[in-house]
Design a protein around this nucleic acid. Structure first.
Length: 651
DNA sequence: ATAGGGTTAG
């Protein structure tokens, strides 16, 4: 028998599963609702035909008004024909419109009016409780369900929906204990219930247990596979998410838009551009459509992979755009160093009347930071409350502190921190400390570090930045004192870790890593590179070494930083990609920055190098195009996520 | 009129 993984492509679309067709019908209904004439017109027409008072028309109108978001009209239509079906239509219509508060109030009103809820009502109100995280009402509804016998008296197929809705409600509210009890007691445990448990566990931060349950599922469909993939994405276990996607393909289950959004999100977080591109090709081959959410995820993926051109190409191709589309493209431009363009994009967003939200403003403020537009940033910050009625949160204050701090306006940044209504958190103090280090302001730096350590005594970032600051101003006595304290308190810094994708495989290197099977070759390649650099005048910069070791040891520490290992690994491979892209968890250290710059100088004809070398105004953000030989254009993009936020430590 | 999975910051 031919294995499923190698079945011919032309069969890939054959044999629709029931799930697939159910989804299609759901989508069709959604599309039909969008294309339908406004409920008011239908209503008028029905009255003209003398059908205005009929119970069927009445409940259909309630449903149409409520799911269209017109609660007042829905309530009027209900008063005209207050049948049980119309009440159900009101509750479920509100739920469908995403107005969970309205749905819960409608349920309460229904009970007060003395109308008996049916299982349709229960299903709708439970969904609303789950989405709104309203466990209290959820439990009350549960009691009513039990009292009404909706579960026990009904034959299993009808009861299953109510039971599943209850289970899902508890899972969404994070009450996995109640969810488990229901799950264990179910007479019929279908794929829906299993899937609710899997995603509930994953949402509760229990991805391992979710996987255990997933592996025990008697049957898996598109939705369950997607739930598991997304579960790993939520747990920040992106490589495992992609691994499950691979297993899904072998299993013969079909992926859809939902699956691909989770896959693309995983690629985005890994900086796995190759894999992300492949996902897109896979979609078109499999006939999976591109909806807004997929487009939004693609924009984010390309931006995080440093390919703003491709992000913009997706943006241009999208015929429907929403708040996420605009926000993602603004963030992408800002983070890739196109501050002015990001601000232009924001103005375009306002022009098409898409309402910005708090995340949009994070993008706008980041853009101002990158473009060095301090006053404009402040204006935008003020406009949040004045014009857009959005209360700034800690993150926005963090942006302002970063904006002022990077511009060297340390005193104003400090003032901002002291005026924050919610008070600073450790992240913001770290941002200010980084600014102090950047501008060599030791006085404020010291007091900020003190505050930061008071708030979070084990904060390694504070020690590292402070130590870097002392080293920069040659205060070696202070550096030594600090390192002593670090040793005594046993403070450990987060290990530096770099990811690199080679031919569709994602490799991870931590500092000093020797776990790669080709470790020996990697280190000797690295040595070869370093020797080459030294011949052209490279001097290792050990001022940022955090650990207390002898001078010669410090060089060794620096040589095995994770990004250097990743670069050596990439240059080692004869089948090396034309683009080498490294994603790192921490900011690059000064030595890696210098070394990488030199690697390109050594290997690149200088004219080409000068033309293409781009530093985005900050000394740590690099995009270098590297040609190893005259005839092979090899581009090396070293991009650290941490570059763009002023708080990360070095390593 | 009816149950499960998707996107942005820190």
């Amino acid at each position: 028998m031919r294995s499923r993984g190698t079945r011919p492509r032309w069969r890939a679309g054959a044999g629709r599963t029931p799930t697939r067709s159910r989804r299609c019908s759901r989508r069709w209904r959604r599309a039909a609702a969008a294309a339908a004439p406004p409920p008011a017109a239908v209503h008028a027409h029905a009255v003209k035909l003398g059908l205005g008072g009929g119970a069927h028309v009445g409940s259909a109108l309630v449903a149409a008004y409520a799911s269209g978001g017109d609660g007042a009209a829905a309530a009027r239509a209900l008063r005209a024909a207050p049948t049980p079906v119309a009440w159900n239509a009101l509750v479920s219509g509100h739920t469908r419109a995403g107005r969970h508060g309205e749905a819960r109030r409608a349920f309460a009103a229904m009970v007060r009016a003395g109308a008996a809820p049916t299982r349709v009502t229960f299903v709708a109100v439970l969904a609303a409780c789950g989405k709104a995280r309203d466990a209290r009402l959820g439990a009350q509804v549960h009691a009513r369900v039990v009292g009404s016998g909706a579960v026990l008296l009904l034959p299993p197929p009808g009861a299953a929906k109510v039971e599943n809705a209850l289970l899902e409600m508890y899972a969404e509210c994070g009450d996995m204990g109640s969810a488990w009890r229901l799950f264990d007691g179910m007479r019929v445990r279908g794929v829906v219930a299993w899937t609710s448990m899997v995603s509930g566990l994953a949402r509760a931060g229990r991805a391992g247990e979710a996987r255990g349950l997933f592996d025990r599922m008697p049957e898996r469909d598109t939705v369950s596979w997607t739930a598991m993939i997304d579960g790993y994405v939520r747990a920040a276990r992106f490589r495992e998410a992609l691994e499950v996607f691979r297993e899904m393909q072998y299993s013969g289950a079909r992926a859809d838009e939902f699956t691909m959004v989770s896959v693309i999100t995983a690629c985005a977080q890994l900086g796995a551009l190759e894999m992300g591109e492949w996902a897109r090709v896979y979609m078109s081959r499999q006939g999976i459509g591109m909806d807004v959410v997929v487009g939004n995820a693609l924009i984010d993926m390309y931006s995080k992979c440093g390919s703003i051109e491709r992000a913009l190409a997706v943006f241009k191709d999208m015929h429907r755009r929403d708040k996420f589309t605009w926000t993602n493209v603004i963030l992408g431009l800002a983070v890739n160093g196109y501050g002015e363009e990001a601000i232009d994009m924001f103005h375009r967003m306002i022009r098409v009347s898409e309402a910005p939200d708090e995340v949009t403003f994070v993008g706008v403020l980041t853009a101002c930071t990158h473009a060095g537009l301090v006053d404009k940033g402040r204006e935008f910050f003020l406009s949040m409350t004045d014009t857009y009625k959005i209360a700034p949160n800690v993150v926005h204050y963090g942006c302002i502190v970063d904006l002022l701090g990077r511009a060297g306006r340390i005193a104003e940044a400090l003032e901002t921190i002291d005026q924050m209504p919610m008070g600073p958190n450790a992240t913001i103090l770290g941002t200010l400390l980084a600014a102090c280090r950047l501008h060599g302001n030791a006085e404020i730096g010291e007091s900020v570090a003190e505050r930061l350590l008071q708030m979070d005594p084990g904060n390694s970032v504070a020690y590292i930045l402070l130590s870097n600051m002392y080293a920069k101003s040659n205060k070696w006595e202070d550096v030594r004192r600090l390192r002593q304290a670090i040793m005594e308190k046993g403070i450990k810094k987060e290990p530096g870790c770099s990811l690199i994708e080679m031919n569709g495989v994602i490799y991870e290197f931590v500092a000093g890593d020797r776990s790669h099977p080709m470790s020996k070759e990697i280190y000797s390649k690295l040595e070869e590179i370093i020797t080459g650099l030294k011949n052209t005048g490279y001097v290792p910069d050990i001022t940022e070494v955090f650990v207390e070791v002898a001078e010669e040891e410090k060089q060794k520490v620096i040589y095995c930083h994770s990004e250097k290992l990743a670069i050596a690994f990439a240059l080692l491979s004869p089948e090396s990609n034309s683009v080498i892209r490294i994603v790192k968890n921490l900011r690059m250290c000064l030595d890696c920055h210098n070394a990488i710059k030199l690697i390109t100088r050594v290997s690149v004809p200088s004219a080409l190098n000068d033309q293409l070398l781009m530093v985005d105004g900050q000394q740590y953000s690099i995009e270098i195009i590297l040609a190893v030989t005259l005839d092979i254009g090899l581009s090396l993009v070293v991009w650290s996520k941490a570059i763009f936020y002023g708080t990360a430590a070095f390593g």
